Amino acid sequence: MKNQKMHKLYQDLKTLTELNGIVSNEKEVSSFLQQTIQLEAKKDYLGSLVYSYGKGMKVMLSAHIDEVGMMVTQITPEGFLKFQTIGKLSGFNLVNQKFLVTTKTNKLLGVLNANPNHFNDKDLNQKNLYLDLGFKSLKDAQAAGISVGDMITPFEPLQPLGESKVFGKALDNRLGVLALKEILNKKLDLKVNLNVAFTVQGEVGIKGAKTTAYMVEPDLAISLEAIPANDTPGGDKTGNQLGMGPQIVFYDSGLIAHHGLRNYVIDIAKKHQIPYQETSIQHEASDAAQMSLSKSGAASLVIGIPVRYTHSHTSVADLNDLENTMLLLEKVLESLDDQKVTEIIY
């Protein structure tokens, strides 16, 4: 990493990404956040955390803490594990990769594969895939503590890539989680009531965003999300490039961005010379879709951190984008007061 600040970001992100937490099993991540954030959290019954401070109109920031993965559905007589994917995972991203199985008492490493007869299938069907942990039998697997429902996560420790890039698992959405954690621990001097939500079950149904928004009843809401970069050969890189700054999302499948809030964030970026991109998401929704509908509604927006190869073992991100996203959020928050929030909404 090119400097001390960037190195710290890398180390903090490495710690977060190497925690394991699929949808409905995020406790490893939430426990870490509660240990390292210097405020008391409110909780919903799904496992989401909400941290609040300041007085005035309510501004809500969110990032989902879960990652894509799998869960054990069956142990075969030969000791292999069958599974159910949790979140969008393609068979092509799974075969010959290492996975970690988290049992009630242990963590066990294995490799995922398919019957050789199925390698030429148009799509590697989940029913033909299995996880090999080296067991000889069902009895051996059970003796090691394996049981139906155990969490399975990709195994790929975060590593540097070039001068400022990194690759590893769970960058979607631990990048957003780290950004909000850093903002909370800075304890900015604000003129609004800030509510930071670390939401669960984002990859399947964006459920934690719904419950936490109902708790907070925000006036303004911003979801921080990892958004696919498309700057590889043959891709349309407009608005979706690594190293070009946070992505201001004008449309996703669950939300058309609030025009006043979107324009305001862009104006702040221009004022402080923070690089940014504008983009849309065609086939997915984020936390902001749920937050926008809470109680009387909230002026809502998605801000993205571009990530290549999302929902795979080895996603790639640029720490410059993370740094600029945090800077943009800080400048937006510091500029707000009740009058400004009212002007943005109406």
Rank of each mutant, 00 (worst) to 15 (best):
M1D: 11
M1I: 11
K2W: 03
K2I: 06
N3S: 14
N3G: 13
Q4H: 05
K5S: 12
K5A: 13
M6V: 08
H7G: 02
H7D: 06
K8W: 02
K8P: 00
K8F: 01
L9W: 08
L9Q: 07
L9N: 09
L9K: 04
L9E: 05
L9P: 03
Y10K: 03
Y10I: 06
Y10W: 10
Y10S: 05
Q11A: 02
Q11D: 03
Q11P: 01
D12Y: 00
D12C: 02
L13Q: 06
L13C: 11
L13K: 05
K14S: 09
T15V: 10
T15W: 03
T15H: 11
T15Q: 11
L16H: 04
L16R: 03
T17Q: 02
T17D: 03
E18P: 00
L19Q: 05
L19I: 07
L19D: 05
L19A: 08
N20L: 08
N20K: 07
N20Q: 09
N20G: 10
G21T: 01
G21W: 00
G21N: 01
G21D: 00
I22T: 05
I22Y: 00
V23K: 00
V23Q: 00
V23H: 00
S24E: 15
S24R: 09
S24P: 02
S24C: 14
N25A: 14
E26W: 08
E26C: 13
E26T: 12
K27D: 15
K27I: 15
E28R: 03
V29C: 02
V29R: 00
V29A: 03
S30C: 14
S30M: 09
S30W: 04
S31T: 10
F32H: 15
F32A: 09
F32I: 06
F32L: 09
L33F: 11
L33C: 10
Q34W: 08
Q35T: 10
Q35M: 08
Q35N: 14
T36P: 02
T36A: 04
T36R: 07
T36Y: 04
I37R: 00
I37E: 03
I37H: 04
I37G: 02
Q38P: 08
Q38K: 10
L39F: 15
L39N: 08
L39G: 10
L39P: 07
E40T: 12
E40V: 11
E40S: 14
E40G: 11
A41Y: 12
K42G: 08
K42M: 15
K42L: 15
K43Q: 14
K43D: 09
D44E: 12
D44T: 06
D44F: 10
Y45G: 15
Y45E: 15
Y45M: 14
L46P: 08
L46V: 07
L46I: 08
G47W: 10
G47Q: 12
S48C: 07
S48P: 04
S48D: 08
L49R: 11
L49S: 13
L49I: 09
